[in-house]
Structure formats: structure tokens, C-alpha cells
């Protein structure tokens, strides 16, 4: 049977966070498992090494830190927002509003013109369609299916109907 090696339990063992009974179980396992024993020793070395050499950050100037913090706190109290949420100056707002109005008016005018043109085109097309309906040729369109007739169009005599 393959023995399961310890993982998170080793960390708890190292940090002395186990009950007495659990600790005893781990101890018994370690006595019979060289690999886990080596792992435990390695973890202890890593933790000891890290603790003995914690890097220190660059020194912080207390006065400057406080001054900055106060400034930021004041801004936050005044309702300071992120730059993208900052209120736009009045003149810029007015300018933007004017541009929006102009664009809207121009756009509306364009749409109205287009609508007028469309109505005109429809009227013209309707008139043409009426004219086409009345054209005698419309009654004889079926003749165009006959290729022979098409070839001799210039010799086809008008009928009594036309």
C-alpha cells in the first residue's frame, strides 16, 4: 500500500496548531517516513531563513507621509472623486452642451430633409408607375417571351387594340 505523504498537516505541525492526539499521529508517521521527515526539515529551514532575513523597505519620511495623507483625507471629505468622475468645469460643460444642441438640431434638420426627399421620390415613382400602367406595351409584355417576335419587333404591326 502506498503511504500518503503529509502536506498541509506538516504546516500545522510546524506551527503547533494540532491537538495532542493529531500531533501524536503525525509524529508516528514521521518516524516511518523519511521523505516527510526531510520535507519537514526543509520547511523549517525555509521558514527560519525567511524570518532571519526579512527585507526592510526604504525609509518612510513620517512628516511627508502625514502631510500627504491629510491632503488626501481632506479631498475625500470634500467629495473628491477619481479623475474620471471629477466635475467638468462650467465653461467646458456649457461648450459641450452647445455642441450637443447643435448636433441634435442639425441632425433633426437632415432627417427632415431626407424625409421630404423620400416623399417626393415616392410621388414621382408613383406617377411614373401610373404612366407605365397606361402604356399599351404593358398589355403585350407576354410577347417578349417569344424570341422570334423580339427579333422582328421593328416589323410587328400595331394591332387594333393599341
Amino acid at each position: 500500500m502506498v503511504q500518503r505523504h503529509l502536506a498541509g498537516e506538516l504546516v500545522a505541525y510546524l506551527r503547533d496548531e494540532l491537538s495532542a492526539e493529531a500531533r501524536l499521529d503525525i509524529h508516528r508517521h514521521l518516524e516511518g517516513c523519511p521523505e516527510c521527515t526531510a520535507t519537514l526539515a526543509a520547511y523549517r529551514n525555509v521558514l527560519d531563513g525567511l524570518a532571519a532575513s526579512i527585507p526592510e523597505p526604504p525609509a518612510l519620511h513620517p512628516g511627508a507621509y502625514w502631510a500627504e495623507l491629510r491632503e488626501k483625507l481632506e479631498a475625500r471629505r470634500r467629495g473628491g472623486r477619481a479623475w474620471w468622475a471629477a466635475p467638468v468645469p462650467l465653461s467646458l460643460s456649457a461648450g459641450l452642451a452647445a455642441v450637443l444642441v447643435l448636433v441634435t438640431l442639425y441632425g433633426t434638420h437632415q432627417i427632415r430633409e431626407h424625409r421630404d426627399l423620400a416623399a417626393l421620390e415616392e410621388t414621382v415613382m408613383g406617377v411614373r408607375l401610373e404612366m407605365i400602367k397606361e402604356a399599351p406595351v404593358m398589355e403585350h409584355l407576354d410577347l417578349l417571351e417569344d424570341l422570334e417576335i423580339i427579333r422582328q419587333l421593328d416589323r410587328v404591326a400595331p394591332t387594333a387594340e393599341s
Partner: peptide
Amino acid sequence: RVHLHRALASLR
């Protein structure tokens, strides 16, 4: 504990 175990295993 799992995070610590994996971290220590990487640094070992």
C-alpha cells in the same frame, strides 16, 4: 495551510 505548503514546497 495548503497555500503555505505549496509556497514552502516551491522555496524548498
